[in-house]
Simulated scan of single mutants.
Amino acid sequence: MAGTIVLATALDQPGITESDRLYADALERRGWRVVAAPWNGPCEAFAGVDAVVLRSTWGYYRAPKAFRDRTELMAAATRLFNPIGLVRWNLRKDYVGKLAVAGIRVPQTHIVACAAAAIDKVLADAGWDQAVVKPASGASGYSVELVKRATLARQVAGLSDEARASGVVVQEFLPEIADGELSLVYFDGAFSHAIRKRPPPGEFRSNSCYGPTRNAETPAREVTEKGAACLRALPETPLYARVDGVVRDGGLIVIEVEVLEPALFLEFDPPSAERFAEATVRRL
């Protein structure tokens, strides 16, 4: 037995997901023992192991300080993937502005207080009638809304406590989202596979809770290279990453980069689990 790798999950869903089971099996075929442990469970589960891989740590955004504190402890005790520097970088969506400064094509994005007046000023200054608003610390489509100036006060009043605590991202609405959002998956900076998530009619969000259709996709090389260039703008190369975006005029517009607990859709390309496992073992 080579050693033990913990896949960090969450108390409300402590087991390994169906997709991550493909990854765990690939690691086990390489001689590693793989176990699951909730990030918000007992600390002892992460002691004396060879590595912790953050996988289905869903709901971390409801307790961002606790999550950051726990991942700091993990990083001090063992090898953490993704590394703690990337965890810190990805916890708040102000990283989108950093990507823009690095020359990555992103939607126009502003972070402001969760207040109707602040959001309305962004819309007025940009000349927008509508925009996507999401918590500055959040995931999984939680409390993400397409707000309109005519109904702004009511919509902002309905945003989550997490949005009020963290502030909100006000982002340009991209009409290309109707044709689906591309999710590009990379291991050690190299493109692995992709899927397209199409929202149902009348919806703009493509997160799983909104019932999108999902299909394997073979993007153009120019698109996957833009995704790889985006990852080169990060503080360090992630073991795993998902770059979400849309294509306009043949080029990728990056909406989000996920290096904490992204769904990697390994089931859409089973050999990808082997690539993920190989990339992991190379780092151990």
Rank of each mutant, 00 (worst) to 15 (best):
E258W: 03
K148E: 05
I255Y: 02
Q155I: 00
R205V: 07
E236C: 05
E236N: 01
G250A: 03
V147R: 05
E274M: 04
P212I: 05
Y210L: 13
L174M: 14
Y210H: 09
E181F: 06
A163I: 05
G227W: 04
E181D: 15
I195R: 03
L260Y: 03
V185P: 09
V170I: 15
E274D: 14
A263R: 02
V254L: 02
F173K: 02
E203D: 14
G189L: 10
V185I: 12
A263S: 15
E222A: 08
D188G: 15
R248M: 09
E274Q: 14
D188K: 03
R248D: 14
P238G: 03
K197E: 01
P238L: 02
A157N: 12
L152I: 12
S192A: 07
L182T: 12
A157V: 06
E217R: 13
T218I: 11
E176V: 11
S166A: 13
L174T: 12
E278V: 02
A216S: 09
S160E: 06
G227T: 12
E162R: 15
G227Y: 06
E162N: 10
E278F: 00
A194F: 00
G211L: 13
A220G: 09
R232Y: 01
K197Q: 02
V247Q: 04
E236H: 04
R275W: 00
L252D: 02
R214M: 07
P262S: 01
P201A: 06
A273P: 09
E274K: 00
S160P: 00
A153G: 01
L152E: 09
L184Y: 10
T151D: 11
Q171H: 15
L152T: 13
P270E: 04
P219H: 15
N215M: 10
F276R: 06
T213F: 03
R205G: 13
F204W: 13
D249F: 03
G180C: 07
V168W: 02
P271M: 08
A228M: 02
R232Q: 06
R275K: 09
V247H: 08
T224C: 08
P271N: 04
A279H: 04
E203R: 10
L266R: 00
G189Y: 15
V170A: 12
A279P: 15
D188F: 01
Y240W: 05
E274H: 04
S272Q: 00
F191S: 06
P199A: 10
A241G: 14
S166W: 06
N207R: 05
K148N: 14
L182D: 06
F276P: 00
F191G: 02
V168C: 04
F191E: 08
R275L: 03
R221V: 13
Q171G: 02
V259A: 08
A157T: 12
A220W: 09
V185A: 00
N207H: 13
K197H: 08
A216G: 11
C209I: 13
D269N: 01
D188W: 04
G202R: 10
E256W: 04
L252Q: 04
